[in-house]
């Protein structure tokens, strides 16, 4: 992790292999980092869900014939968390798929992940650049102190 002394922004940069076990280890690290930063639990839950769905999608579908690399960078600003996920797997734009969740009574065993990403992530962007998938989004965060200030 690095700190920008002028803005107090913090950057968490990490990477993992495209296996579900590695993805889990990264998610546990990010969760521990956010808890240590005194981020309100509700937002930690949102970040955990979005990142889990994005990273496990890449692990499952991005590199079908090999194990690839996934880079994750989280810019932790005072009241928002900007996330950027980069991989060199198959092109995949999660914004192109339908927004509606599966109908509960259909009892589907899949199809919830992209809906959760699109529901919780703000300003989801996707670009394919030089053979890389680059996905960005942000979620509102902050410390309990910032939240109290915002509430007046």
């Amino acid at each position: 992790m690095t700190h920008n002394k002028l803005t107090h922004d913090k950057v968490l940069s990490t990477s993992c292999h495209s296996t579900l076990e590695d993805v889990r280890a990264v998610l546990v690290r990010v969760d521990a980092y956010l808890r240590a930063a005194d981020t309100p639990t509700d937002w930690i839950e949102d970040v955990n869900i979005i990142l889990a769905e994005v990273l496990s999608n890449i692990a499952r579908h991005g590199y079908p014939d090999s194990t690839g690399r996934i880079d994750l960078e989280i810019l932790h600003k005072r009241d928002e968390l900007r996330c950027c996920i980069i991989d060199t797997g198959h092109p995949f734009d999660p914004r192109l798929l339908r927004q509606a969740p599966p109908e509960p009574s259909f009892l589907q065993e899949g199809g919830y992940g992209l809906f959760l990403i699109r529901t919780l992530a703000r300003a989801l962007t996707y670009r394919r650049i030089m053979g890389c998938n680059r996905l960005t989004f942000w979620v509102p965060v902050g410390t309990r102190q910032v939240v109290a200030e915002m509430a007046g």
Partner: peptide, 14 residues
């Protein structure tokens, strides 16, 4: 923590 795969597995169990 539970993700959509965990939810899907519970639906599968049901």
């Amino acid at each position: 923590f539970m993700d959509s795969s965990g939810l899907g597995a519970i639906v599968g169990a049901m």
